[in-house]
């Protein structure tokens, strides 16, 4: 059983979150808009590993492009326009484009990986949390904890506290 607190205002939600943290509960924040700055401000900056994926994506794209342009030219040797078979300028252009292509692609994949998408198992605990409310969800609580948590949330200004049954 989970408990969800819905807040109309972000700052009250963050207050509640701080209280939950100090009470030793792990929680998940749901919001219709990114609250990255605010949460970073409240709980300290978090690390993201996407940049490494992006970097290696770009790098691999560069090498794929180079390999594709030079390798396929070497596979079937057809000289054109008095230029060498390994002609660097066009290879760089192709590599440039593949760098971006791969960089973007790998970034998307890493985003999916880190954001846990796609996953159809769980829905948003309450529709409002996707529209105009900020949700604070605490997972897997016992029945006796519910009242305590409800109290904390209500006190911090939750407009509504919901019990969410697991499917």
């Amino acid at each position: 059983m989970d408990i969800l607190g819905l807040f109309k205002h972000a700052d009250t939600m963050l207050d509640a979150a701080k209280r939950l943290e100090s009470a030793g509960y792990a929680f998940t924040v749901f919001s219709p808009v990114p609250l990255v700055h605010e949460i970073d401000h409240a709980f300290g900056e978090r690390k993201s590993y996407i940049k490494y994926f992006t970097f290696f994506g770009g790098l691999s794209g560069f090498f794929t492009g180079t390999l594709l342009a030079l390798g396929t030219a070497a596979l079937y040797v057809l000289p054109r326009g008095g230029r060498p078979i390994f002609f660097i300028t066009p290879t760089l252009i192709i590599s440039y484009e593949t760098t971006i292509l791969f960089g973007v692609g790998i970034t998307l994949l890493s985003f999916f990986l880190f954001a846990g998408l796609p996953s159809f198992k769980k829905d948003v605990p309450s529709p409002e949390a996707a529209i105009d409310s900020f949700g604070l969800l605490v997972d897997d609580i016992r029945e006796d904890e519910f009242v305590k948590l409800e109290k904390i949330l209500k006190e911090s200004g939750a407009d509504e506290v919901k019990r969410v049954e697991e499917e």
Partner: peptide, 21 residues
Amino acid sequence: SLGWRGTDRQWHMHGKACMFF
């Protein structure tokens, strides 16, 4: 929407990825 829930972590990743894109 691939099961997007709007959690803080997802938003965080979204923001980072968007920057790189």
